[in-house]
């Protein structure tokens, strides 16, 4: 394959990955890494390097719109970024210590988990309304617009949420992804924040989390310009188009189809990892 054909093929695939990532709400990274590895036979380290920088682009690009709507909570985001950036440092450090086959296997399981969460919208539990003293001290609360006013919320189980965010950061640094699914788990399920606040704040945090591993990735040579270029531009274009589509079309069937694709990718990553092909 010539440079031109290869670059165009990667660009086209990245647009699809960005589109898929936006429509399923999982982000482009979780899709582009297995596709680069399995379809284009790219080394896992180059794949996660290219993915990581594309993740920074999509997170930052989408944040402006979310912030304007008033759902994302910058205080909660900033506080939890202490955990995710520390985790990302550990994850990026581990990429040189853990074999590619293990990274691929872990990646496969994260894919399966992500597909599962995107299929099952877990029923929102009502917050217990017992004020969490640590959350009050740290001012981890806010309000968001609802029809006819504002609804208030306070975070719960702060230490547990902080701990899971550390794991989310580690996975982000180890796999070159945003790990939005784990971030939402920490905020929505553990800290009992409203779902919309969790998803938008998670997106807001992804760029900073990824930036914490980027320096280590650069110094290790995971980020190569010729590959990162079409991935960044493609994933960014695809996710912008995807978020527009989300507003205009009914996406439930698409979601199911895409989830099946992600399950298939996850299964193949696990298979290749366990059989030592990555």
């Amino acid at each position: 394959m010539s440079v031109l054909v290869f670059t165009i093929a990667i660009f086209g695939t990245s647009i699809l990955a960005g589109l898929l990532g936006a429509l399923t709400g999982l982000g482009g990274g979780v899709v582009i890494v297995p596709v680069l590895c399995l379809l284009f036979k790219v080394d896992l380290h180059y794949a996660i390097g290219a993915s990581l920088v594309s993740v920074i682009a999509t997170s930052s690009g989408a944040a402006a719109a979310y912030v304007r709507e008033g759902y994302s909570n910058i205080r909660i985001g900033m506080f939890l970024e202490v955990a995710t950036t520390l985790g990302a440092l550990l994850g990026a450090y581990l990429t040189a210590r853990v074999s590619g086959n293990w990274i691929g296997t872990i990646f496969g399981f994260v894919l399966l988990y992500s597909a599962w969460t995107s299929m099952h919208k877990i029923a929102e539990e009502k917050a217990s309304l017992i004020p969490d003293s640590l959350a009050m001290k740290l001012n981890l609360r806010g309000s968001f617009p609802v029809t006819g006013g504002h609804e208030e919320y306070v975070a719960e189980h702060v230490p547990a949420g902080f701990g899971i965010m550390f794991i989310a950061g580690t996975l982000s640094g180890l796999l070159g992804i945003g790990s939005g699914a784990v971030k939402v788990l920490a905020m929505d399920q553990v800290m009992k924040l409203p779902f919309k606040v969790s998803t938008t704040t998670s997106n807001f945090m992804i760029g900073v989390t990824a930036a914490a591993s980027a320096g280590i990735y650069l110094s290790r040579g995971y980020i190569v310009p010729g590959l990162a270029m079409p991935v960044i531009l493609g994933v960014l274009a695809g996710s912008v188009a995807g978020s527009r589509l989300l507003v205009n079309t009914h996406v439930k069937t698409l979601r199911v189809v895409f989830s099946i694709v992600i399950v298939a990718l996850g299964a193949e990553m696990i298979f290749n990892g366990l059989t030592g092909r990555l």
């Binding site: 036979k41 380290h45 995971y222 310009p225 010729g226």
Partner: peptide, 11 residues
């Protein structure tokens, strides 16, 4: 550039 094998040289 050969992306199939990791060269490990810094960017």
């Amino acid at each position: 550039f050969d992306y199939q094998r990791f060269h490990g040289s810094p960017t």
